[in-house]
Design a protein around this nucleic acid. Structure first.
Length: 389
DNA sequence: TCTGGGGTCCTAGGACCC
DNA sequence: TCTGGGGTCCTAGGACCC
């Protein structure tokens, strides 16, 4: 145990653990014969590997794909061909037609995700879930220097999953997240505050978690490309340009300042389902197909709510038109719902408020203002001050 | 054949209440 | 005739993240 238990004054040490090319790595553990080959994940069921009579698998390639999807992951070999996650699959097919294509298999990834997070928990008890393939862990109180802790984390994850991860250890979440990316894949990076000018400031501003494409473009207009160039600006100037909240956050982030605590428990805010149609649909001409898709979405949201034990008081729809403009409408009910019929009724009222003369590319249904179905009070960290888990 | 799906958080205006 | 200010809820859109 370290001497100072006060979180405000003790030296915090936060680890960010990020699985390497997670979905692709899970797939490689199922199909080791694909190791070393360019491979991407992003297809649908029809691209599942077929078992041949001799016991080997026949795989689809990107050249066989047609549709509107994007890549979910690409192996490092595929990335070398210029494709990356988020890229439209048809575009990737032009760049790497011979890359192996696999459909997404969330059940498999969730299984590996549990193994990964359980392995981290054997090293550090307090963790924050960020997504399926990354967590923060509070390692302030662990024995040993940061490099030793990083090695323990990586070894535990590899032993439990057979997969590699990258680890960053730093005084706060912002710097930990940034540093886990500096030695990827299968590496570790330790960052202390004194390293910020030399190791953080040369990086592009976009690498800060919270600076997205829009903010990066606005910064570039001001001649700010790197984190160091951002750090050199007056807080007052950033506040004037970006508003009080975001401007002062930008200034602090650029200096590596971040006081956020780990969030070790959270309740969902909304549950939604959406689908992009293979071909744009028209509200009148494709009424039957649209109605069927709408009902199916309501049923899936209802099933999700019931499985997770929630009801919701606000029901909404999301539409994306053929020109990619997106609109949402929602309505708050007097009493919460979780059944498909109740959701469909409320969502249908929302649909009536939208001009449907354009063709639709996407339809979504969402339920928010969630409450626990069993009436239990939502778990609140503030009421306890610690995490009983 | 450009642009998935499931989320969170923030902002801003209007309604409504005191 | 003129016209407060704070608080909360609702709604729509947008940025961002994995």
């Amino acid at each position: 145990m370290r001497p100072d238990p006060n979180p405000m004054t003790a030296a915090r040490r936060i680890a960010h653990i990020d699985m390497d090319a997670f979905f692709a790595s899970c797939e490689l553990s199922q199909y080791p014969e694909l190791r070393g080959l360019p491979m991407v994940v992003g297809g649908r069921g029809e691209h599942a590997p077929r078992l041949r009579a001799d016991g080997t698998h026949a795989f689809s390639t990107l050249a066989e794909y047609s549709g509107r999807g994007v890549l979910t992951t690409a192996t490092y070999e595929a990335r070398a061909l210029g494709v990356h996650s988020g890229m439209p699959t048809m575009k990737a097919a032009r760049l790497a037609p011979h890359a192996v294509l696999l459909p997404v298999n969330f059940e498999l990834y969730r299984r590996y995700s549990r193994l990964f997070k359980d392995a981290v928990r054997t090293v550090a008890a307090r963790i924050e879930d960020v997504g399926i393939d990354e967590v923060y862990a509070d390692v302030s109180e662990l024995d040993g220097d940061a490099a030793t802790v990083a090695t323990r984390l990586r070894r535990a994850v590899h032993e439990a999953t057979g997969l590699t991860c990258s680890v960053g250890i730093a005084p706060n979440k912002l710097l930990a997240k940034l540093s886990s990316d500096l030695n990827k894949p299968d590496g570790a990076t330790i960052l202390v505050e004194a390293d910020v000018p030399t190791r953080v400031w040369p990086l592009p501003a976009r690498r800060i978690n919270g600076i997205g494409p829009k903010a990066a473009a606005r910064l570039a207009e001001l001649g700010i490309e790197t984190i160091g160039e951002l750090a050199a600006r007056d807080a007052a100037e950033l506040v004037a340009r970006f508003g009080r909240a975001y401007g002062s956050w930008l200034h602090q982030a650029a200096h590596g300042v971040d006081a956020r605590e780990l969030v070790t428990h959270s309740e969902p805010v909304s549950i939604s389902r959406e689908t992009t149609f293979e071909h744009d649909l028209h509200a009148v001409r494709d009424r039957a197909a649209l109605g069927a898709a709408f009902s199916a979405l309501c049923e899936r949201v209802a099933a999700d709510l019931q499985r997770k034990g929630y009801v919701g008081r606000t029901v909404g729809v999301k539409l994306r038109f053929d020109d990619f403009t997106t609109v949402t409408r929602d309505t708050t009910l007097a009493a919460p719902v979780a059944d498909a019929a109740g959701i469909r009724r409320a969502a249908g009222q929302c649909l009536k408020r939208i001009d449907l003369s354009r063709r639709l590319r996407l339809l979504g249904v969402r339920v928010s203002k969630l409450e626990r179905a069993d009436g239990a009070a939502p778990w609140r960290q503030a009421e306890f001050g610690f995490d009983p888990e």
